[in-house]
Design a protein around this nucleic acid. Sequence first.
DNA 1: GATGAATGAGGATTCATTCAT
DNA 2: TATGAATGAATCCTCATTCAT
Lengths: 217, 217, 217, 217
Amino acid sequence: MSGAEAATAEDGQAAPQERPRRRQARGERRIAQLLEAAASVFTTTGYTAASTNAIAREAGVSPGTLYQFFPNKEAIAIELGSRLMHEMRETYGEVLTPVDPATPLEQVVGAAVDRFIDFNCRHPVFFALMHGPDIPGRIAEEHDALHATLVTRVESMLTPLLPDTPAPEVSRTAQMCVGLYKAGLELVLAHEGAEREAYVRELKNVLHRYLDPLVVD
Amino acid sequence: MSGAEAATAEDGQAAPQERPRRRQARGERRIAQLLEAAASVFTTTGYTAASTNAIAREAGVSPGTLYQFFPNKEAIAIELGSRLMHEMRETYGEVLTPVDPATPLEQVVGAAVDRFIDFNCRHPVFFALMHGPDIPGRIAEEHDALHATLVTRVESMLTPLLPDTPAPEVSRTAQMCVGLYKAGLELVLAHEGAEREAYVRELKNVLHRYLDPLVVD
Amino acid sequence: MSGAEAATAEDGQAAPQERPRRRQARGERRIAQLLEAAASVFTTTGYTAASTNAIAREAGVSPGTLYQFFPNKEAIAIELGSRLMHEMRETYGEVLTPVDPATPLEQVVGAAVDRFIDFNCRHPVFFALMHGPDIPGRIAEEHDALHATLVTRVESMLTPLLPDTPAPEVSRTAQMCVGLYKAGLELVLAHEGAEREAYVRELKNVLHRYLDPLVVD
Amino acid sequence: MSGAEAATAEDGQAAPQERPRRRQARGERRIAQLLEAAASVFTTTGYTAASTNAIAREAGVSPGTLYQFFPNKEAIAIELGSRLMHEMRETYGEVLTPVDPATPLEQVVGAAVDRFIDFNCRHPVFFALMHGPDIPGRIAEEHDALHATLVTRVESMLTPLLPDTPAPEVSRTAQMCVGLYKAGLELVLAHEGAEREAYVRELKNVLHRYLDPLVVD
DNA sequence: GATGAATGAGGATTCATTCAT
DNA sequence: TATGAATGAATCCTCATTCAT
């Protein structure tokens, strides 16, 4: 729905749209540039406080240019999130997808956390995007395609581990895991060096111990 | 430290003895009124999006009056947080303070979570204040006296349970617990009825299982 | 509904509102000043092209000040229109109100047109306001309280002249008269001196001849 | 005069004989396409609020293309108006041209109004164009070639009916008639069905009664 | 000729904060 | 004290127009 989304579609291959909309290479570059700038600004100031003008400035273009590619601030966040998820899949492949039930849980959790943390350290926006303009009872609707996707992926990772658990409960567990992830991530990012390592270990412990009694032996 | 305190303190020097009393009384009422309004607005819109004008309007006073008691928006949040912590102590007394090592952990965690959740449901601002204008690596410095206090309290609750654990590790565990609390709380608040209950149970499980291997039997 | 409307209410006399809202004299002056500026800008550029910033600048205040008194551009136009109608009533009293059926129609029309034109020359905004952001089939809803009021007044002026005519037809005739007024006014304002006088005469003729066959002898 | 003409004229010098033909043909199609789109947008949003980008989008071309044929927004309106007048002449031929003095005025007026209204209903832009970005005393100069042309035509229609009237007065009467037309049209378009019919009748009455005393019997 | 990209001043509106009364 | 007035930079976003390809 975002301008950028249309942009991502490789021309000619996708279903024919109203107008071919043959995006030029320059535009594609601009979009990347804008998303990079947005990532930087979101990371620095948080999503809510980030201004579209600031993003444009950081990208070295005029505000108007930004709006040629994105209809509004939220669309930028959404596209950014979607690209992050995409890259996550690309990079880690099966990380968060169904695992061999034989693998020890500790190892599954350890690997997942490691890779997740690693990814976040290389893409600090990720965190900023997950803390959108949240109002308590309202887990940021469309804004959080990111959150939703994450939950879905964790869900499909958990399913084979919890074969006898009813779906709604798996879903709840997945929600919980993502929440714990986020909480741990916050602490990890807030520290450095050995301390950071320690928090990573703790996070693994939390998840491992939480899930251990649930998995089928 | 709080803006309100600073404001009320100023007149203690110039005025005679009985005057300050009444002035302070009126001032206290105003402050309470303003904090109540602020709580309402923060809850509805979140801290960042809340405007001081909106708070003043909600309190039924002019913006000028608000600034007579608080130097800025942050000061309101800080004072609000400090009062919340105070009330928490008043209400639950020993909840989060050292416990009899004989009490089963499950019970300790269960009681703490129940009361904490209960407190949050009666004071929804609490949540809003914990999700201030956070920037990833920077756990909202002065803003989060709230967070800091909470951590301290959890720390002192954990100490007797972890007698052989070095202080820094206890501190880390406390940080972790508070983080997990927050994560769980978010999910709890986002649901209602039976689903909410289920999330409360999950949160208890998380904490219990996390701490269980750490406590001395 | 507009901020200014609330302002116009003389305090203490009207029903007690939420808060007394004791508007200060300065504010009242500001409102007058802003409306004057708005009148000037609307007259020069037309309603649609007028910018709130331009109005503020013309009034010698900051944009923020304007928005302290009016929630948006439309509210300014509405308040301006309402004040114009008010002044019209004040100035001309019975102009557009029921007339003695004995008065010759020519004289009735002549007087009404003269006063109307006169009023418009002294308040050129009037015309600008009647040409709001019209889209063909949509005679500018609330915007045109002005138009509506005018029609109502003309209606009540026509009623005694057309005693045997059904109400809907009177209403239609009134609409028509106002439309003709506006059309004539445009031509009158577009000319000067003798030419203007000639157009005034023509307008009178139009109306007189249109209504003549309708009135009861 | 029109931007389109200027654009198409340019290439006549450089190219050989047959090339221009096809180029012009394609250009003509583009222009027609653009004008159609402009008509649609003007009708929907009004002239002032219409954006050239919106017109280009509606036409399915890029903004750049639009500006290859028209130097600016106004030029589009002008060309559109001129084509409308042209079509009016084509379609109704003698409608607004000199009439047989023997024809009863009522019939002349009736036919003219009917055809005019009919034309407007089939070309709703017409109305939008006549309500351009008018400023009171300034009957939209160049913009209103439309208005001017209309006046001229009405003038030439009136001349034989008012043989003894001095030219300037005829001109004034023509201006007046066009103004009344516009006023009536607005009301007609604002209603539907029987109500619309009623307004059409009223408009005819207005014009008939206005002109009746002026024509030579 | 056609496209999409780029512009940048300008639009309405908000808001934390200060000031005069 | 308390009020309403005042500020002005900043917000998001639009648009007529020009440019490079």
